[in-house]
Design a protein around this nucleic acid. Structure first.
Lengths: 222, 222
DNA sequence: TATTAATTTTAGGCAAACCTAAAAATATAA
DNA sequence: TTATATTTTTAGGTTTGCCTAAAATTAATA
């Protein structure tokens, strides 16, 4: 049933195709894979044929690639590894959240399943990684996570910052001053009637932010 | 000065050559490398030429290979990674000491130096790994430890197991059956003239082990 | 010392994963 | 709808790291 161990390259392609496919629903173009992986389209065609032979994807000439069920399974395990390692790097080794991706990119290819299960246990089965992305469990199941605007969070609810909408240096600097970044845990404790400002808690510190700021921050509810 | 990043293969060769060289002192034969890595001698010749060009070793046709200063430096960093990961796997993830080698073999090739320094810090700068092997520090310096082979222990002397020389799953399993592991206290009570077998005591239980087994166990005299 | 044995190297090949250049198919726009 | 642009594939080539078979060198032994 299960195929042989995949190479690092094959794993990178599967992960990319999965990510581009929106959970397996969309056809993925050769060009889009090429752009993400920074590999020439001709090379992508080669690999896509190979993965097709292994039934990890379906590929029709000139029509793009669709990831298969077994492909999705593989992809979810790689993503699981990646995100668990990110939690480890961030929580245990104190790496900043913006430094962990590249290292996890290497660690995700270490093959032992026993290792990743023990790591999962050691980290106490985290549900989301430091960027707020959900971590598939051993079976590849992702607990549904809801991403909403911080301004839509209700009083006493918490979330992890997972995206900054306004991509603007001024705004970035402001957030830095407020100690808000991807991965930051935020709890809402008050919503002011006066102007809809939010009173929030970050690292046990209270803080007031405007509705405009809050609506430019996406969070994952926890 | 420092060359480009090495491939996994190159790293494996350097580590092997260093291990066979007794700290850089001995010439290493093509055949011995071939046997350790389970790669044909002809292929070893290829790689040895390549490493020679990179000045990581000196190679003279038909005469064997000698590791260079920069080769030793590289080797010690790989060994450092390997052994730190072994500590992590054993102490934090609760892997049994006889399961960690193969996983560490993969992890040692993850490139980030920042990662390994943070791991070192997280593990509180351990001096030895779970097999009793010393861990080089960031600069490649190994703190000296005095060890002798169990087979060289005299009658009525005792020691603590601090290293298993033969890194082989069969041998690890055998030792497990005999209740011998790193940290185990052993006393020699008899040396048989017949075949040099040793009669030893572990946990108040007498036990007979062959000279071959004993010579693959390093101990610290107490 | 001469012959045989073992070790090491050379020569030529192969698979994986990339590349460039050119051809084929599809999409877009006049 | 034809011409042009874009995307994708094919064809042929490179490098890395391995292989086998045969030749060259060194070591062992009779």
């Amino acid at each position: 049933m299960s195929n042989n161990k995949l190479t690092k390259s094959e794993e990178d392609y599967i992960k990319t195709i999965f990510n581009l496919s929106e959970f397996g629903n969309k056809q993925v173009s050769t060009n889009s894979i090429s752009k993400v992986l920074k590999i020439e389209p001709a090379s992508v065609t080669d690999m896509v044929k190979k993965l097709s032979l292994k039934k990890l994807i379906y590929h029709k000439k000139y029509k793009g690639s669709q990831i298969s069920k077994s492909g999705i399974k593989v992809a979810l395990q790689i993503i699981r590894k990646h995100r668990l390692w990110e939690v480890f790097l961030h929580e245990k080794l104190n790496f900043k959240w913006d430094k962990i991706h590249n290292i996890a990119e290497e660690l995700e290819h270490v093959s032992s399943n026993k290792l990743i299960d023990k790591l999962d246990d050691y980290l106490k089965y985290p549900k989301i990684d430091p960027h707020g992305d959900p971590i598939p469990n051993k079976l590849g199941v992702i607990e549904s996570t809801i991403k909403i605007s911080l301004s839509d969070l209700k009083i006493f609810e918490s979330g992890i910052v997972s995206r900054i909408i306004k991509e603007d240096d001024h705004f970035f600097k402001l957030l830095k001053k407020l100690n808000i970044q991807i991965g930051t845990k935020i709890k809402v404790i008050e919503k002011l009637e006066f102007d809809n400002s939010l009173e929030i808690i970050i690292d046990n510190k209270k803080l007031l932010i405007s509705k405009k700021i809050a609506s430019n921050i996406k969070i994952t509810k926890i």
